[in-house]
Design a protein around this nucleic acid. Structure first.
Lengths: 346, 346
DNA sequence: CTGAAAGCGCTTACAG
DNA sequence: CTGAAAGCGCTTACAG
């Protein structure tokens, strides 16, 4: 983590940190020979190479990292749900590991609340690339990173236009698939809880939802739509509003899983059983969906693959390549569990 | 992330990466003057210093990190529950940020399953310290890190003896408190699902549980005890065994939250309602406890503070200090929610 | 295959 | 306050 030393003519020796000259003396060879071994260059005898390798290992000498790959890949979050963040980290890690790069973690939210800066220290670490899983990658951030020559890849960008490069998932198709699932079960009055207005992904899900109803010839009652933050408490409150309507929906499609669990609570408070009295669909597939009561039917976002793809794009950019597709959307797919069933009336 | 370059006489310039000499030329001063500015040494005029600072910033020149702090803090997990891992990362991050150090992430499980090595690449990054949140920090690992002069702090160690340094939480007291809570509600037949035999923390929880019963003068029916992996499916299976006993328990204390959610499912399958027919207590307080149905009463482990404490110890060791307390246990405290209530019979 | 020589980028110690 | 000179650790180009 953190960038390492920049060229320095000299450094005080550290435990297990001998100089090339010292290793050379120990091996009974000249510094240039040790240098060749360090860089895997030709022109060193087999036995000499082995002896030097052995001494380097023994003294924990660290080979200089390849030019340009000073640091590693840094992933930046803002108050992300734990299981999503970890899945993304694992995806990034797998790609980074193939290049022997490390993966750094930054949670902007927790740093800001402690009054600590994050952009400058992160830049100080000279990352090979930055993957920003924050809902607010501004043009300003892009400018700062670009000025330092650090490629930035956004995850699930939510700005007005898709800024390249970015990686997300097929929100529109996912919402379409989820809604079709409910239609196939026989639901006709389907409520929708969507995310905050500014979120492009929330808008895509809304559109996919409406497209499913539309192509099925089912008219949408606008009173069945609510919008709010991607949190359980808002799912609960907005869900309550929908479920206490004179003619309530028999199913609710939620903007994410947390909202869906909020709807679970709203239903419980009203004495409604899921899926008997109400079907619920989430979005994301966070860790707990499978063990919720009942297990939540949801649209799975392939977070590990999203992280891996972002890492590949960041690495390509760092190498000076133009990735063939700077804006990528990976397939989000419906996972049917126990929170959806035919409506009572059917 | 990842170690930076070691002393190198020369390096090809990188975008935004000018040499000291080049900066000196641009500023119209000599290289030694730039060097002084870089290291904050005295003997540079105010206006000269400002001009050089400005040029350094403009060209993204990275100051050499302080001697010895080559890299950052690396946190190593093995298939950890997402919300726990992220809480630990945030705690480590807050302490690391005060020193402008980055925080690296390694998931051994996902790397191993991809056939990728992790110890050597991690060492190559020259971390200031390593925090191991894996259940299997072996003496061998300790040896390797020690040989490289990298301090290692274990989290919640599970070996035969507490290897110093390590940070955990008060498992024994936590389990005692949880069990007392159930006793106070009037429960007398309390079941226990414990973790795998090798886990020291699981043993501490078991002992705390027994101590609570013992000091309350409540005899323990050994048939009410089961043990297995810290996973929901095992909680479900072991919970089923307890609940189908001729004289089943009215409450169950679980080794962790995942097991508790497994017991939720076992109860559901048997038509038992929580907390009316059965009280359940977990351990950890993962993200979803608050929104489960019903919200889970559990013993909260202060993961962020555990991470922060481990980071402080690692940093102290890296500085060559002997931390006053190399083995630390932070207080785990009961969080009462909706999964516990007086037994039916009371 | 090997190393003496030259050179590079940086820092230190010191002269002005 | 400033920089010429010396020195350090490393690498490169080349002679043997």
């Amino acid at each position: 983590m953190i960038g390492g030393g920049r060229s320095q003519g000299r450094r005080t020796p550290r435990r297990g940190d001998l100089s090339v000259g010292a290793i050379a003396r120990l091996a009974g060879v000249s510094p240039p020979t040790v240098s060749k071994v360090l860089h895997g260059r030709a022109g060193v005898g087999e036995s000499t190479r082995e002896r030097v390798e052995e001494l380097l290992r023994e003294h924990g000498y660290r080979r200089p990292v390849p030019e340009g790959s000073a640091s590693g890949l840094e992933v930046v979050f803002r108050d992300m749900v734990g299981s999503i963040a970890i899945e993304i980290m694992r995806g990034v890690e797998q790609v980074a590991a193939t290049r022997r790069l490390g993966v750094g973690f930054t949670d902007v939210g927790s740093l800001e609340s402690a009054g600590l800066p994050w952009v400058e220290p992160l830049l100080l670490r000279r990352p090979v690339g930055v993957i920003a899983a924050v809902p607010d990658v501004t043009a300003e951030h892009r400018g700062v990173f670009e000025a330092h020559g650090v490629p930035l890849v956004a995850l699930d960008p939510t700005g007005d236009v898709h800024p390249a490069p970015s990686v997300g998932s097929t929100s529109w198709s996912g919402a379409l698939e989820a809604t079709r699932h409910l239609l196939e079960l026989g639901h006709r009055r389907i409520g929708l809880i969507t995310g905050p207005a500014g979120f492009l992904a929330a808008r895509a899900r809304l559109d996919g939802f409406l497209a499913a109803l539309d192509t099925a010839g089912v008219p949408f009652d606008e009173r069945l739509m609510r919008g709010g933050p991607f949190l359980a408490e808002h799912g609960r409150d907005l869900g309550s509003q929908l479920l206490t309507l004179p003619d309530p929906p028999t199913a609710v499609v939620c903007g994410n899983d947390l909202q869906a669990f909020g709807v679970y609570e709203a239903a419980r408070l009203l004495g409604l059983r899921i899926p008997d009295d109400l079907s619920v669909v989430g979005f994301d597939d966070i860790e707990h969906c499978a063990w919720a009561a009942p297990a939540l039917t949801t649209v799975r976002q392939p977070f590990a693959e999203i992280g891996a793809t972002a890492a590949r794009i960041a690495l390509a950019l760092a190498d000076g390549e133009r990735p063939p597709r700077p804006v990528v959307e990976l397939g989000a797919a419906l996972v049917v569990r126990d929170s959806t069933a035919p409506p009572r009336s059917a």
